[in-house]
Design a protein around this nucleic acid. Structure first.
Lengths: 216, 216
DNA sequence: TAAAAGTGCGAACGCTGTTTGCAGTTTAGA
DNA sequence: TCTAAACTGCAAACAGCGTTCGCACTTTTA
């Protein structure tokens, strides 16, 4: 058995001795992503992934040492869909805001990505490319590196925050069904008052404001 | 069997007919919280909670219709530890910043609370008290109610963001162990450059700035 | 050519949430 | 007062999960 070191990224994907493996980490990750896209993260069971690949569950443990490894692989593969090689606008703030938008779209496209990425193991190669891109974009700024890393953390955190909310908010009257006029007068008033709809570009405004406040 | 309606909050905790139940929802939630505090959320299994109460796993289904109900109960009970009856300072911003600080401490005290609260079912009574408190605090502001609800969402989101990060950040050199000088020069430079430590009151500053920007 | 290392996998293990069926208990209505 | 309905507690089982074991087979190394 392959010695079970900390993360899958520090293990070679295969040895040199035995027969050529019939599958690859990328193939396994792709099969698991397809299952999770269709039925959520809990649909990507070891047995289901193996079935998708035409093999048996136990065989997956030749490629992974645990299901956590599978989730790490899925997160990394999904991050690979985030384009980082577009042309730079020359404005660091515009580039970061655009990146956040693409990242939010990615999280919306793969709803399983947020819970899978939150069980923070070590970062995979794609996550390191992401950090590298952010730091390169912020290179001209005179801030310290600690502040920049903090800013990246807040950036991804804000994306996660918006990704956790559904794109179209559910009916609040249903969610707060048990609100009582005695105990929750303000809440009930807020639910019944129509009021103007919120501005739709909250995400961009928030990202811009927070990054500007953090880095200048 | 109790008809399995949407959430546990819309079901009566017991009928009027049979013998008096030997336990209560509050007792069950307390036992589950103790287990989760000690061994994480996955330690609060139905069997373990039942064992803590000196009963059998199947008996819990007289009080809950699923484990999701148990988690809803735990989240609500934990939110009950958040004091909302303190004196108001008269300054809405100060009150909300103080609330955020107490909330962050709560999430740190119960690390299982964040993942448990993120699987958004409907809100429990304690969550509605929380919303009510926020809206009451923001009552003097001239903003629309939609903007205020948005601000509350961003507030709890920022708390979640900081709660997800460990209090003492882990060694970055270990997390980014696979960074290579060719592909990640900025990242490696950021890791080796000592630089000044980040200011410790990032949380308060961020909350204050975001709320001010969102509500004025 | 023998040994070492790797691969695929059927079968099992321990654990999980949940359901079923039954015996005992309390209340509601005639 | 008495029967029927509703409720409680729970042993036992079920289906599914991640994971391990042992074995036959294949490829590379020395």
């Amino acid at each position: 058995m392959p010695e079970t070191t900390r993360s899958i990224w520090s293990r070679p994907d295969r040895g040199t001795r035995g027969p050529q493996p019939e599958h690859s980490r990328a193939e396994i990750a792709a099969a698991a992503m397809a299952l999770a896209d269709a039925g959520g993260l809990e649909a990507a069971t070891m047995r289901a992934v193996a079935g998708e690949l035409g093999t048996a569950a136990a065989s997956l443990y030749r490629y992974l040492s645990s299901r956590d490894d599978l989730l790490d692989l899925m997160v990394d593969a999904a991050l690979g869909e985030l384009p980082l090689d577009g042309p730079s606008s020359g404005d660091w703030l515009e580039d970061l805001v655009a990146l956040a938008g693409r990242q939010l779209a990615l999280y919306r496209r793969h709803p399983w990505l947020l819970p899978a990425a939150m069980r923070r193991g070590t970062y995979g190669p794609r996550a390191m490319d992401y950090f590298e891109y952010c730091l390169r974009t912020m290179a001209p700024l005179p801030c310290g590196t600690a502040a920049k890393m903090e800013a990246v953390g807040v950036l991804t955190g804000l994306v996660s925050l918006f990704a956790a909310q559904p794109a179209a908010p559910a009916d609040p009257a249903g969610i707060f069904a048990a609100a009582t006029p005695q105990a929750h007068p303000h809440l009930l008033a807020a639910l019944t008052t129509p009021g103007p709809p919120p501005e739709p570009d909250l995400f961009d405004r928030l990202i811009r404001g927070v990054l500007r406040g953090l880095l200048t």
